[in-house]
């Protein structure tokens, strides 16, 4: 069990992540302190949650480019609701955020399922549509910190057992995914549909419905993140999280989620997001220019894909075994 983990791409990625942290620590003492690492984790929480949703979609051989727009729209709606009705409980706002996210995810999923439109086309379209709706509902104006209620802004920062609630939410989502993906029939179906859609059909799995489910879950999580993002940064405007959809895909790719579908793990997606999170947090403190940051993130993606494209080592071992027998 331990040996097979050491050979996995997750182990390689974990090693790379630790090496990266140590490298930063050698330049900038104190980075590897638990308190700072916890801060980095907290800062990466939203990326982790979104990357997990995207993982499901990519596992089924699809992609969702509209997640950041979905996040920005739900964030704007919750902020405007809060500004208009400060008395509305946060639980109700959370429910609205998740529900809106689910609806947007379902819209993507339906177009992919029922109309058979390639997912990249569907979500490229909804990426702009959802972003455009923000402008329609807000008229282009911002919702600023002073318009938001204290309770609205407090939730993600509130401390619980030494960690902010934002971190705890990410931990709960990770745990939910670890169980849901590995231990339920639907989780298995994501892998089957992406691994071999033709075979999945013959196994009695509804390929379209499974893809729809992936889009809905990813959309719901993006809705949740909409509230978390806007309340954390205490500002909502049309361009919130602009371009973040590519960070989400990058986290998945670095985490070894195969863009061809059917292969990847929850742990991989989390590590991929953390890898990006460390780069984004460490390089500025080390005084490296943002342009180098982009180049380094880009290089990490290509290196990760090159690693994943290698043939698995077990094949060689098997050949030896076959040769012997």
């Amino acid at each position: 069990m331990i040996i097979s983990f050491l050979k996995s791409r997750e182990a390689i990625l974990l090693g790379a992540l630790i090496a990266l942290i140590l490298l930063v620590e050698s330049r900038f003492s104190g980075f590897a302190m638990p308190r700072n690492l916890a801060a980095v984790f907290n800062d990466t929480s939203i990326l982790i949650i979104l990357a997990l949703g995207q993982t499901l979609v990519i596992l089924t051989r699809c992609i969702d480019l509209s997640l950041a727009s979905n996040l920005a729209l739900t964030g704007m709606v919750t902020a405007m609701l809060n500004a208009a009705m400060p008395g509305l409980p946060i639980v109700a706002l959370l429910a609205v955020a998740v529900a809106l996210g689910l609806i947007m995810g379902a819209f993507n999923g339906l177009l992919v399922w029922k109309l058979n439109i390639p997912p990249i086309v569907v979500t490229l379209g909804t990426l702009t549509i959802y972003r455009g709706i923000i402008f329609l509902v807000s008229g282009g104006s911002w919702v600023n910190s002073h318009e938001m209620s204290a309770a609205y802004k407090a939730l993600p920062r509130a401390q619980m057992l030494g960690l902010p609630v934002l971190s705890w939410i990410a931990i709960v989502v990770i745990a939910g995914f670890a169980i849901g993906v590995n231990r339920t029939a639907l989780g298995r179906a994501f892998y089957a549909v992406g691994g071999n859609p033709g075979a999945a059909v013959y196994t009695g799995i509804d390929v379209g419905r499974t893809r729809f489910s992936a889009f809905v879950i990813a959309g719901g999580l993006a809705g949740l993140c909409g509230y978390l993002w806007v309340s954390r940064y205490a500002v909502a405007y049309t361009d919130v999280a602009g371009g973040f959809e590519l960070d989400i895909v990058a986290a998945c790719v670095i985490g070894g989620i195969s863009i061809a579908g059917g292969s990847g793990t929850v742990l991989g997606a989390v590590l991929g997001a953390l890898f990006l999170g460390v780069i984004k947090n460490a390089l500025p403190v080390a005084g490296i220019s943002p342009f180098w940051q982009m180049a380094i993130s880009g290089a990490a993606i290509i290196i990760a894909v090159a690693f994943n494209a290698r043939k698995p080592p077990s094949r060689i071992i098997l050949k030896h075994a076959e040769a012997r027998s």
Partner: peptide, 19 residues
């Protein structure tokens, strides 16, 4: 095209319709 899901482990392939 229609038989096994090659990226999946053997046991998961076998149990897929019987989960």
């Amino acid at each position: 095209k229609q038989g096994a899901i090659t990226a999946m482990p053997i046991f998961q392939n076998v149990t897929l319709p019987s989960l």
